[in-house]
Computed example of a mutant assay.
Amino acid sequence: MPESPATPGTVAVVVGNPKPASRTLDAATHVARELAGREPDLVVDLATLGPGVLDWADPETGRLVDLVGKAGLVVVASPTYKGTYTGLLKLFLDRFAGGTGLTGVAVPLLLGASPAHALAPELTLRPVLTEIGATVPGRALYVLDKQYDDPAAYADWLAATRPIVSSLLKQELR
């Protein structure tokens, strides 16, 4: 994915799956593309950052935090682990404390094996994104792992959420 300086119109994806190039990454990229009508400008696959995500002085991780923080739209995704998002994603999101929060629209997305955890993104990821400054429109999104590549699994959520996101992004660009 091309990396450009973050602007209000920037679309970013952040994925907290410990496995690089995961189904979670595919799902998040799909959601970003559907909401923005184009490919994301920035894709942060946290599994590829290695120990830098643990080092608060790591310049590359710091640069990515800055770019994500300034993005107009960020899809934040993780597999569901123990009814919540991964520790890897938590490590990255912790970087947004202390005035370096998210400034745009954020979409929480979790993938999981069972419908039993369908409320997990709403109850665990959404509040964190809101706390660090993001505007979180509509409901958080939960997709079953086995349906991650099925556009129908996203259709109802996209129909309800896309107009809200589009409206917020248009206001941001004014």
Score class of each variant (00 low, 15 high):
residue 61 T to Q: 05
residue 115 P to D: 14
residue 97 A to N: 12
residue 60 E to Q: 14
residue 62 G to K: 07
residue 32 A to D: 02
residue 109 L to G: 05
residue 117 H to W: 11
residue 161 T to M: 06
residue 44 V to C: 03
residue 101 G to C: 08
residue 124 T to C: 11
residue 164 I to F: 01
residue 43 V to H: 03
residue 125 L to R: 06
residue 123 L to P: 00
residue 160 A to T: 15
residue 124 T to G: 07
residue 75 V to Y: 04
residue 160 A to N: 13
residue 102 L to K: 00
residue 84 T to A: 11
residue 124 T to L: 08
residue 172 E to F: 04
residue 30 H to A: 12
residue 60 E to F: 05
residue 137 P to R: 04
residue 116 A to N: 12
residue 127 P to M: 06
residue 62 G to E: 10
residue 43 V to R: 00
residue 152 A to D: 14
residue 75 V to F: 02
residue 143 V to Q: 05
residue 92 F to A: 05
residue 153 A to S: 15
residue 93 L to D: 04
residue 13 V to T: 05
residue 66 D to H: 11
residue 104 G to M: 00
residue 107 V to Q: 05
residue 54 L to M: 13
residue 72 G to W: 07
residue 37 G to F: 07
residue 115 P to M: 13
residue 162 R to N: 05
residue 110 L to K: 02
residue 73 L to E: 03
residue 137 P to L: 08
residue 89 L to W: 05
residue 116 A to V: 12
residue 102 L to E: 02
residue 19 K to G: 11
residue 46 L to H: 04
residue 5 P to Y: 07
residue 172 E to H: 08
residue 127 P to F: 10
residue 145 D to R: 12
residue 63 R to D: 08
residue 57 A to M: 12
residue 6 A to M: 07
residue 3 E to F: 15
residue 30 H to C: 03
residue 88 L to I: 12
residue 89 L to C: 09
residue 35 L to F: 07
residue 54 L to C: 05
residue 153 A to G: 12
residue 1 M to L: 11
residue 123 L to Y: 10
residue 156 D to H: 15
residue 113 A to C: 08
residue 60 E to A: 12
residue 129 L to V: 07
residue 124 T to K: 11
residue 6 A to Y: 02
residue 12 A to N: 02
residue 65 V to M: 03
residue 116 A to Y: 13
residue 75 V to Q: 05
residue 1 M to P: 09
residue 146 K to G: 10
residue 24 T to W: 06
residue 97 A to L: 13
residue 19 K to S: 14
residue 52 G to W: 09
residue 129 L to N: 05
residue 129 L to P: 03
residue 42 L to D: 00
residue 172 E to A: 15
residue 13 V to M: 02
residue 133 G to K: 10
residue 104 G to C: 07
residue 111 L to M: 12
residue 14 V to P: 03
residue 41 D to C: 01
residue 164 I to S: 08
residue 2 P to N: 12
residue 148 Y to Q: 14
residue 1 M to H: 12
residue 2 P to I: 13
residue 116 A to Q: 12
residue 64 L to D: 04
residue 162 R to W: 09
residue 65 V to N: 01
residue 106 A to I: 10
residue 127 P to N: 09
residue 31 V to M: 11
residue 137 P to V: 10
residue 89 L to K: 03
residue 93 L to S: 05
residue 121 P to D: 09
residue 37 G to V: 10
residue 143 V to P: 03
residue 98 G to K: 13
residue 121 P to F: 02
residue 68 V to P: 02
residue 40 P to D: 08
residue 109 L to E: 05
residue 12 A to G: 00
residue 85 Y to N: 04
residue 134 A to S: 11
residue 114 S to T: 15
residue 39 E to K: 12
residue 68 V to Q: 06
residue 15 V to H: 06
residue 76 V to T: 10
residue 101 G to D: 05
residue 91 L to Y: 06
residue 102 L to T: 03
residue 30 H to E: 11
residue 131 E to D: 09
residue 66 D to L: 09
residue 118 A to S: 15
residue 159 A to K: 15
residue 138 G to L: 01
residue 63 R to E: 09
residue 58 D to T: 08
residue 170 K to L: 11
residue 68 V to S: 04
residue 172 E to L: 14
residue 56 W to P: 06
residue 93 L to K: 07
residue 58 D to N: 14
residue 131 E to S: 14
residue 73 L to D: 00
residue 78 S to D: 01
residue 142 Y to P: 02
